[in-house]
Computed example of a mutant assay.
Amino acid sequence: MKAKLGVSALVLLFLGGLWLVAAPFAVGYQPRGAEYVDATVNDLWVGGGLAALAFVSLVIYAADALRELARRGKHAES
């Protein structure tokens, strides 16, 4: 149960980070063809960092889960 909650939180953080990256363009507060406004730069850095951190955490979690499954499979064969 705790693992599902943690993975769900990481997925939500990842999606939130992607939204922050897309928001300036989707919502329209970044004028097309103009130099990036401060809010856009902030959203890109914070959103990109948040999405990257969540993605790396998900990959680490998945690798650990696969390692645990392999360990259990090895013990089951013995």
Rank of each mutant, 00 (worst) to 15 (best):
G33C: 08
A62L: 05
H75Y: 04
L12R: 05
K2T: 09
A63T: 05
I60R: 10
A62T: 02
E77R: 15
L44F: 14
A34L: 02
A9S: 07
E77C: 08
A9F: 11
M1K: 06
P24D: 00
R32G: 02
L44M: 13
L20S: 09
W19I: 09
L66I: 12
S57W: 01
P24V: 11
S57E: 01
V41A: 04
K74E: 13
R71S: 14
F14I: 02
A62D: 00
V46M: 12
A39V: 11
L69R: 14
V11G: 03
F55I: 06
L66A: 12
Y61M: 12
S8Q: 08
V41C: 00
G16Y: 04
V59W: 02
L66M: 13
E68N: 03
P31C: 04
F14C: 00
I60Y: 04
K74Y: 02
R72A: 13
L5C: 03
F14D: 04
A52V: 10
A51W: 06
G17V: 08
F55C: 14
F55R: 08
L13V: 00
L44H: 02
L50A: 08
D38V: 11
G6Y: 07
G47D: 06
G16W: 01
V11L: 14
L58H: 06
F55E: 03
A51E: 05
V46L: 15
W45M: 12
L13E: 05
A22Q: 01
L13N: 00
L69S: 13
G49P: 06
Y29C: 09
L15F: 03
A39R: 10
G48S: 02
P24S: 04
W45E: 08
